[in-house]
């Protein structure tokens, strides 16, 4: 794997691992030369990224720049869309998740996902959490303990411990989203992907989720797509800026990774003019 090159002098390292990604001490996932297609349409091209263990990485950029598409490729949720295809390699603990013999079901269990709109199942709070362990056949000593642990980690236990049997639909939007986070961690993933998790929440609920993310990063690696630059600046260790490149011939929009670095560097000292324009609010 790429680790074999880590000691090589910079100029001898393979180009495709990119410069910044090699600075990450313990990458848990690597995205190498990834193009994502929907049929003939290329939605994202030439992405090289790495996600550090127990770090929060934010993917930012204007609408249509392919950041959500890339995110959904990271746990093979894109497989569910007709005609979606990934070129290149996405390595998880060094293993290509699109490799031969890899079961997408197992990929999705190890790499969890939280969606833009809170999507609790129309079941009780308890069953929402117990669902994942049950369907994946996880060996659990005590489901009650697992439910409590998951809800506690998602900072929701105190609010719901007396109404575990009630429907999750009755919770507020922010509570529902924390329930979805608890649900995601119930199957013990390594990585949690978050697709604009606060887009439908009010500022107070958003703040709680952001606080929660800081807690979660101690145990999990988080990749978050966000439209909100302040959010990226507040929560993320590293930030990747994407933009849409319009093809001159066809007018097709393809997402490209413009710049990737520590959040401080991206926001205070962007190397690319497009990044600077975007974060200073000149476009997007």
């Amino acid at each position: 794997m790429a680790s074999a090159h880590d000691d090589a002098p910079m100029h001898l390292r393979p180009m495709h691992t990119g410069q910044v990604t090699d600075h990450i001490a313990r990458p848990i996932m690597r995205v190498e030369n990834v193009d994502v297609y929907y049929g003939d349409f290329r939605a994202v091209t030439e992405v090289n990224l790495a996600f550090g263990l127990n770090e929060i990485t934010a993917l930012i950029g204007p609408s249509g720049c392919g950041k959500s598409t890339l995110l959904r490729s990271l746990n093979r949720m894109n497989d569910l869309i007709d005609g979606a295809r990934v070129d290149g390699e996405i390595l998880f603990h060094g293993e290509n998740i699109y490799g031969k013999g890899v079961d997408p079901i197992e990929v999705r269990r190890r790499i969890g996902m939280v969606f833009q709109k809170p999507n609790p199942f129309p079941k009780s709070i308890y069953d929402n959490i117990a669902y994942g362990p049950r369907v994946t056949g996880m060996k659990v000593d005590s489901m009650d303990d697992l439910v409590e642990e998951s809800l506690t980690r998602a900072a929701l236990w105190d609010e719901v411990k007396d109404k575990l049997k009630q429907s999750a639909i009755g919770l507020s939007g922010g509570q529902q989203q924390r329930l979805c986070i608890a649900r995601a961690i119930s199957v013990r993933p390594d990585v949690i992907l978050m697709d604009e998790p606060c887009a439908s929440l009010d500022p107070i609920a958003t703040m709680r989720i952001e606080d929660l993310m800081q807690e979660l990063r101690k145990q999990y690696t988080i990749v978050i797509v966000t439209h909100n630059m302040q959010q990226a600046a507040r929560v993320a260790d590293r930030t990747a800026f994407f933009t849409a490149q319009v093809s001159e011939g066809t007018g097709a929009r393809t997402g490209v990774l413009v710049e990737y670095g520590t959040t401080t560097q991206i926001f205070e000292d962007p190397k690319d003019q497009r990044t600077e324009d975007y974060i200073s609010g000149r476009f997007g």
Partner: peptide, 27 residues
């Protein structure tokens, strides 16, 4: 049944069959 429910189930590592049988049909 909203597709978010299916996505939520599949993202947890449920199979298509489990998702249909345990989420879509009951709903």
């Amino acid at each position: 049944v909203p597709s978010e429910i299916r996505d939520g189930s599949l993202a947890l590592g449920a199979t298509k069959w489990q998702t249909t049988w345990r989420q879509v049909l009951p709903a």
